[in-house]
C-alpha cells in the first residue's frame, strides 16, 4: 500500500510542478523555488511529517521535501538550543543531499564532458 501512496503523492507533486510550467509559464527555477517555499510552509504548520508517514518516499523525494528538511533542522535546533537554532539548524538535515550533489557533480565534471 505504501508503494501505491508513494507513487500517487510523488506523482501529484510533480503534476503540480508541470502545471506551473505549462499553465503559469514559470521557468524551472521559479517553479522549484516556489515548491521549496511551499514545502517549508507545510512543515511550518506541521503537515509535512504526517505526509511522509503516509506516502514515504513519495513525499521525501520531491523538492518540497528540501524545504521541509530545512525547516525541520531549524525547528529541531530551536527546541534544543534556543533562538540561535533558527540559524544554526537550517542545514543540519539537508547536508546529505546538498553535499552528495556537490561532491558527485564536481567529480563528474573532472572526468566527463557534456554530450550536447
Amino acid at each position: 500500500m505504501q508503494f501505491l501512496w508513494a507513487f500517487v503523492i510523488g506523482g501529484a507533486i510533480c503534476v503540480i510542478g508541470q502545471l506551473m510550467f505549462d499553465l503559469f509559464k514559470l521557468t524551472p527555477a521559479h517553479t522549484m523555488a516556489t515548491l521549496v517555499v511551499i514545502g517549508a510552509i507545510i512543515d511550518g504548520i506541521g503537515w509535512y511529517e504526517p505526509l511522509v508517514a503516509f506516502a514515504g518516499a513519495g513525499a521525501t523525494v520531491p523538492i518540497t521535501s528540501f524545504g521541509n528538511a530545512l525547516v525541520h533542522g531549524a525547528l529541531t535546533e530551536l527546541e534544543k538550543s534556543g533562538w540561535i537554532g533558527v540559524i544554526s539548524g537550517i542545514f543540519k538535515v539537508t547536508s546529505a543531499g546538498v553535499s552528495a550533489a556537490i561532491i558527485f557533480s564536481f567529480l563528474a565534471a573532472l572526468v566527463v564532458r557534456p554530450k550536447g
Binding site: F21, D22, P28, P114, K115, G116
Partner: peptide, 20 residues
C-alpha cells in the same frame, strides 16, 4: 552551434528542462 546557443541563452546542455 546548438550547444553554445543553449549554454549562453538558455540552460546547460545537459540540464533537463522541457522545451515547449
Amino acid at each position: 552551434h546548438n550547444c553554445t546557443a543553449e549554454k549562453q541563452f538558455r540552460y546547460p546542455t545537459e540540464y533537463g528542462s522541457q522545451k515547449p
